[in-house]
Computed example of a mutant assay.
Amino acid sequence: MSKKTANDTASDLSDATPGQRGPADHERREQILSVADDLFKAHGFRKTSVTDIAREIGVSSAYLYRFFNSKQAIGEAVCARALSSMDNAIRAVAERDQPATQRLRDMLQTLLEEALRLFLRERRMHDIIVVSIENQWSVTEEHNRVVYETIEKIVADGRDSGEFERKTPLDEVCTAIRVTAAAYAHPVLLSRLGDPEEMETKLTAVTNLILRSLAP
């Protein structure tokens, strides 16, 4: 599997966010996203309008539509930037020069840490991620693909090194791990798992069970 850099990831996520207009690297686009991000965190995605964003920047709503065709398009772009930090973090773990067993453990831990940061500590970001999941925005589908492919790389490496069993179909193993890990990276489910320390204890137990099931 080929490596992806942070720039590659940013490009992938940009491609996955519909409703974009104008040059991708325009400084005004970045200003719009930065202001929208702040407003979404302060007031929530649902309560923030395109007019609110335009007013904060000091331009007309019509001007914003030169770059995004709707509030959803702005929301998807903000969401993509937030999720890309999680994607980059778990990809970095997958590329480490360590045994696959350790990388899988660290990747699931990193997924939880990033989810806690985005979904619980930055509560308004929780709001926009929930909206994106409920409405099946393409950015969350892209994020799910990245998580799956990261798991797939680690498991495949573990099979090649003899750390993991090879009898079970690879896609079945990766899907099972992805579904199991979903509770620790979903904003709504995460909020029901208890305090962060308890979550880490539960994740350790789940990870130990996963690794035992992968043993040759």
Rank of each mutant, 00 (worst) to 15 (best):
S132T: 10
Y148G: 01
E114F: 00
H186C: 12
R81Q: 10
T17W: 07
E134R: 08
A181H: 02
A185W: 03
L104F: 00
H43D: 14
T9Y: 11
E76D: 14
N69P: 05
R159M: 13
Q109F: 00
E197C: 01
V179W: 04
R66H: 11
E142A: 11
R212Y: 03
I53A: 04
L170G: 04
A73F: 01
R28E: 13
L189C: 09
S14R: 15
R28T: 14
R105V: 00
I32W: 04
P18A: 15
M107E: 01
S70I: 10
R46V: 14
S2Q: 15
A62M: 12
I90M: 06
S70P: 11
M1L: 15
Q31Y: 03
R124V: 04
K71N: 14
S2P: 14
H43T: 14
P187W: 02
L118C: 03
I133G: 10
R21P: 05
A10K: 15
A24M: 12
A185Q: 11
L170W: 06
S161Q: 10
P216V: 05
T204A: 13
A94D: 03
G162E: 06
E172P: 01
N208D: 15
L170V: 03
E172H: 10
E149P: 03
T150D: 10
A100T: 00
C174T: 10
Q31I: 05
F119H: 09
L13H: 13
V93E: 09
R124G: 15
E114A: 06
D97C: 02
L190M: 07
F164H: 08
E172W: 05
E76G: 08
L190A: 02
A205H: 02
A215N: 07
S14H: 12
A181Q: 00
E149V: 07
Q72I: 13
E95D: 09
L214K: 08
A54S: 13
L170I: 13
G22R: 11
R66F: 05
L108S: 02
K153E: 13
Y148S: 08
R21H: 11
F67D: 15
E27K: 13
L116H: 02
E113D: 11
A215Y: 03
L64A: 06
A6D: 15
E95A: 08
A215S: 12
P187E: 04
Q136K: 13
Y184K: 01
D160Q: 14
T204D: 02
V59F: 04
E200Q: 10
E114W: 00
D106R: 02
V155R: 04
R28K: 11
V206S: 03
A185M: 08
L170M: 10
I53L: 13
S213P: 03
V78S: 02
V78T: 09
F67V: 04
L120M: 08
A24S: 15
S213V: 06
L108F: 00
Q109S: 03
P169V: 05
I210Y: 04
E200M: 01
T101F: 00
F164A: 14
S60D: 11
R81L: 09
H143F: 08
K202M: 06
R123P: 03
G44I: 11
A10Y: 12
R166F: 01
L108T: 07
E142N: 10
E197G: 04
L13P: 09
A24C: 09
E30S: 15
C79N: 13
D97S: 05
S161C: 05
